[in-house]
């Protein structure tokens, strides 16, 4: 074999393997491409755009081009009490709605799990899941109508007990409670669904063993059910947390963030800044901060998943 042939063979082999590799990978990339293009166009590009805009002073209606202002928007966010209020309200709302929907949803899940032979169980479950299938905007509108102090059915029922029309949405505390309860009404069924999925993952043999050993209800829950169900339940709670953090549409339709700003959650504030004031710079800044917080929750979610893999 001469030098020419020795060099030619690897080259030819390289070309073949390159083509082969291209063929193999090309197929894979071909399959991935639509999703990747979609992801880049609708997620990555707007995200980069938003991060960039957060360093600019840019209000659409002034006619001025975006003006770089460094971290002014971030400093302004840090010093604006209204922004801080929106953050604190959102975290409080998140804590309460996740706790309540988690508690109510899990209890309902346990009830349905323990009543597998109950007649009408399927219909009851379908009805129970309906609220989470509705669009939040329509939920906001019809609860607004039901809570209307002059025409609303809830207000009418409240009058039967209190003797006077209750004006739920005009006062700070009652409006906040109304927003919270509407959200719990919508999302507690999701936790029921998660709980049922979690309970289904408990091996039947272990439950039977617990029965044979005459383990008490609480001990069964703690030692048999919970170790199997905890990951799915935690994932459910984390998904609810991320979802509650983003809540905007129900508030927009139900109270518009009012009275005053008493129900203005973070999403609603970003909406008002971006689409009412058209202040793209400050809205983007708030969006970036909200995104970082959401990334924090997602990391926690991924950590929980990794825990499950380790234990598994």
């Amino acid at each position: 074999m001469n030098a020419k042939s020795t060099t030619a063979v690897p080259n030819a082999g390289g070309r073949r393997s390159f083509m082969g590799s291209l063929g193999r990978h090309g197929f894979v990339w071909g399959l991935l491409a639509p999703a990747l293009i979609f992801f880049c166009v609708f997620n990555v590009v707007p995200l980069i755009w938003m991060v960039g805009l957060s360093f600019y002073n840019y209000t659409l209606t002034t006619g001025n081009p975006p003006m770089f202002n460094g971290i002014d928007n971030y400093l302004s966010l840090l010093s604006d009490p209204s922004d801080w209020s929106a953050f604190s309200r959102t975290f409080l709302f998140m804590l309460l709605t996740v706790s309540l929907s988690g508690l109510i949803g899990s209890l309902l899940g346990l009830v349905f799990w323990g009543s597998k032979n109950l007649p009408g169980r399927r219909i009851a479950l379908t009805m129970l899941f309906t609220p989470m299938l509705l669009t939040p905007a329509s939920v906001g509108v019809f609860f607004k109508l039901m809570l209307n102090p002059n025409f609303g059915v809830i207000s009418y029922i409240a009058e039967l007990f209190t003797g006077h029309r209750v004006d739920f949405l005009s006062h700070q505390m009652s409006a906040q409670i109304a927003v919270l309860l509407v959200d719990v009404w919508m999302w507690a069924p999701f936790m029921t669904l998660i709980t049922l999925a979690a309970l289904a993952s408990v091996p039947q043999a272990e439950l039977e063993a617990a029965r044979v050993d005459r383990l008490g209800w609480f001990a069964t829950l703690k030692r048999v059910i919970f170790p199997h169900a905890k990951f799915i339940l935690m994932l459910g709670l984390l998904l609810r947390t991320i979802d509650a953090f983003k809540t905007t549409d129900v508030v927009l339709l139900l109270t518009h963030g009012g009275p005053g700003a008493s129900t203005e959650l973070l999403g609603m504030r970003i909406y008002r800044l971006g689409f009412n004031s058209l202040d793209m710079g400050n809205a983007s800044t708030m969006g970036v901060v909200a995104l970082l917080i959401a990334i924090g929750f997602t990391s926690l979610y991924l950590y929980v998943l990794s825990l499950k893999r380790v234990e598994g």
């Binding site: 005009s170 006062h171 700070q172 963030g257 009012g258 009275p259 005053g260 700003a261 008493s262």
Partner: peptide
């Protein structure tokens, strides 16, 4: 609008 309605609702 935010400030005025705060006053009307008794928050301010």
């Amino acid at each position: 609008q935010e400030a005025f309605t705060s006053y009307a609702a008794g928050n301010a």
